[in-house]
């Protein structure tokens, strides 16, 4: 007969509900700060290097024409040097927006910052 009262909220129910809400809110509020974005460097042979954007590093990546030098600092990333003719990649300067990228097309190297910018695309 005791199960006939299934609809009735018990003290146990309330404890469970509030405990779960507490845990949920805590997780939601306490760590809304996302983990740092990553710099994802892809070279022609599809070799992928990942670096946290918060690091301070200068790395060399081997491409089709030679070594490209990429610098990560202060949450930004840029091409310091690249063996391409027009240096469009270097002219692009620093990028820091999630989802943004710089490519050195002649050397076959793509540098992308992980994450979503909140836009479906950016022009140009």
């Amino acid at each position: 007969m005791e199960n006939l009262q299934a609809t009735k909220l018990t003290l146990g129910d309330l404890i469970v509900i509030f405990a779960l809400i507490g845990i949920g809110l805590n997780l939601l509020m306490g760590r809304t700060q996302a983990s740092p974005a990553q710099v994802i460097i892809t070279s022609t042979d599809r070799q992928i290097t990942r670096i946290d954007i918060t690091e301070e590093r200068i790395i060399e990546v081997e491409g089709k024409l030679g070594k490209s030098v990429i610098e990560v600092a202060d949450g930004k990333v840029r091409f310091v040097n690249s063996p391409c003719p027009h240096h469009l990649c270097m002219k692009r300067g620093w990028i820091d927006m999630p989802g943004d990228w710089i490519a050195c097309v002649p050397n076959g190297i793509l540098v992308r910052i992980s994450g979503e910018s909140g836009f479906d695309a950016v022009t140009p």
Binding site: F119, D120, A121, P124
Partner: peptide
């Protein structure tokens, strides 16, 4: 590279949201 063709709408039914760069501060 910023020239794009957009098919249909976003899958959630909203239009695509395309950002435009600042010409002097491409970041």
């Amino acid at each position: 590279g910023g020239d794009m063709r957009l098919l249909g709408k976003r899958p959630d039914g909203k239009p695509w949201r395309i950002a435009i760069r600042d010409p002097r501060h491409p970041g």
